[in-house]
């Protein structure tokens, strides 16, 4: 992939946020079309590599809202929450910046290369402080400080108590950034970190904005999905006491009309 160095990045006003770091990067490289405006209003969305379905759905709702507010989504390009955030940003028509945990010359796997191209084609950027650097244990936490610094607020979706996301949060706190965490199920290990952030007051809970019911569709099935997102067809059939054959027909129509989305067999409001 083509990349260039940001010449004298410390002189660029759009990167002023990075100079607040205790140890700012020495050099900076990027892929994509440099557009200073992209750095103006950034929100970082970070979280676990081991994302659950709940996490994926949360990312989609969260990123959707952030993009609607005109924010650029910054994340770490790792699989799991990070990549889901980049993908969601592109899907919602927003811009996104991926801060790599390795050097620009490192060869990406096919799936990641496809995502990287999508980011660039949608007007986003890939940036890194290294030119030739293998991804290793220490590069990821180091990269996290840049993610934290670029954003004015950091949103954590699913993070265990000891995780890279917590490092990002700590960096962000030092820099005085706002921290939000998405509350998760108390039974879920990957939500223990985020729930603790909220409980200890280090982060504000992020809750989805009010969902406005759309006019015209107010069937029992739709109402159930609106009230309790994340149910499977089996569960809805049992709750409503209808067969999955009949239910399936309606679910397909709801999904095709776009008022309901299906993720891995679970139905949510679209």
């Amino acid at each position: 992939m083509e990349y260039r160095e940001v010449r004298d990045w410390k002189k660029l006003t759009e990167l002023g946020r990075l100079s607040g770091l205790k140890k700012p990067p020495e050099r900076l490289f990027f892929s994509g079309d440099w557009n200073p405006g992209i750095f103006e209003n950034c929100a970082a969305v970070v979280g676990s590599r081991r994302m659950t379905e709940y996490g994926r759905w949360s990312v989609e709702r969260l990123v959707g809202e952030l993009v609607n507010q005109g924010k650029t989504i910054v994340s770490g390009f790792m699989y799991g929450v990070d990549q889901a955030a980049h993908e969601a940003a592109i899907e919602f028509g927003g811009k996104t910046i991926a801060v790599l945990g390795w050097g620009m010359t490192w060869k990406l796997e096919k799936r990641e290369r496809v995502l990287a191209e999508k980011i660039i084609n949608s007007g986003g950027l890939l940036i890194s402080e290294w030119e030739n650097q293998e991804p290793t244990l220490w590069t990821f936490p180091v990269r996290n400080r840049i993610v934290a610094a670029l954003a004015s607020a950091v949103y954590v979706v699913e993070a265990a108590e000891k995780s890279g996301s917590m490092i990002t949060v700590n960096e962000a706190r030092k820099l005085g950034r706002e921290i939000y965490a998405v509350p998760g199920p108390i039974t879920s290990q990957v939500s223990s970190g985020t729930n603790n952030l909220i409980a200890s007051g280090k982060a504000k809970p992020w809750l989805p904005g009010k969902i406005v019911a759309r006019v015209g569709v107010e069937t029992p099935v739709y109402r159930l999905i609106r009230e309790r997102g994340g149910l499977t067809a089996d569960e809805m059939g049992r709750t409503l006491g209808i067969g999955v054959d009949v239910l399936g027909i309606e679910l397909t129509h709801l999904v095709l009309s776009g008022v309901v989305v299906e993720r891995d067999g679970q139905y949510y409001q679209g």
Binding site: S48, R49, R50, T52, E53, Y54, Y79, G80, R111, P185, T187, S188, Q189, V190, G230
Partner: peptide, 9 residues
Amino acid sequence: PTRPCVCSQ
């Protein structure tokens, strides 16, 4: 729904 997956991508 609740158990995280431990596999890499």
